[in-house]
Amino acid sequence: MSDPMIHVRGVCHTYRHGGVQEPVLHDLDLDIAPGEFVVIMGPSGCGKTTLLNIVGLMMPPSRAEVLRVGGRDALGLDDAARARLRRHAIGFVFQRFNLLPAISARENVALPLRIRGERVDGQVDSLLERVGLARYAGKKPGQLSVGQQQRVALARALVGRPSLVLADEPTGNLDSENAEAVLALLGEFHREWHQTILMITHNPALAAGADRVIRMQDGRFCD
């Protein structure tokens, strides 16, 4: 097997607010192979988002023996280097309010390319077309339905062809019809482009299409 996309050993995380310490993640090990579609499930508050944020380099863990993402040791990176890695290797989809309200759907999708300093070419529009929103490209997020917004967010997460896509309850705010549509798109892109996908969901039905489902409870994986 080639180098894992995500290689985590002994990750612990404790939130501190005021004097109170709240241990959330306990000594987690996780390996995800390139191209794997992994779903994390677990009760609310068990630490799923925290884990995703750590893997997505959005926050450093309190403690970790190993944290490798996309073949890079993420523990030694400074803020700018982590930003660079996110920019080039990771695409995010969040539960809601993914988009910048001041710019159009098209500009939202183009944003990762602009941040990289790359040319914005036809692929922004072709992606919008694939998620069925070609007609809405010029609209601002406020003029789109929640389901449409989420499809724009998906297009934005994929436009830069990241090798890793992290999705935190991407369908959590959608009705079942829209949820299935978004998930179907994600599956479609995965079959085509073979990104590694790590997705959090509460919905067992949506987990069915994944290569692997990891269950979490109180900051630990249950096996």
Partner: peptide
């Protein structure tokens, strides 16, 4: 604040 979080997730640096 949330938009800034989104921009950061997209890899925008502090300097940006």
């Amino acid at each position: 604040t949330r938009e800034i979080g989104i921009l950061k997730s997209l890899g925008v640096t502090r300097f940006n």
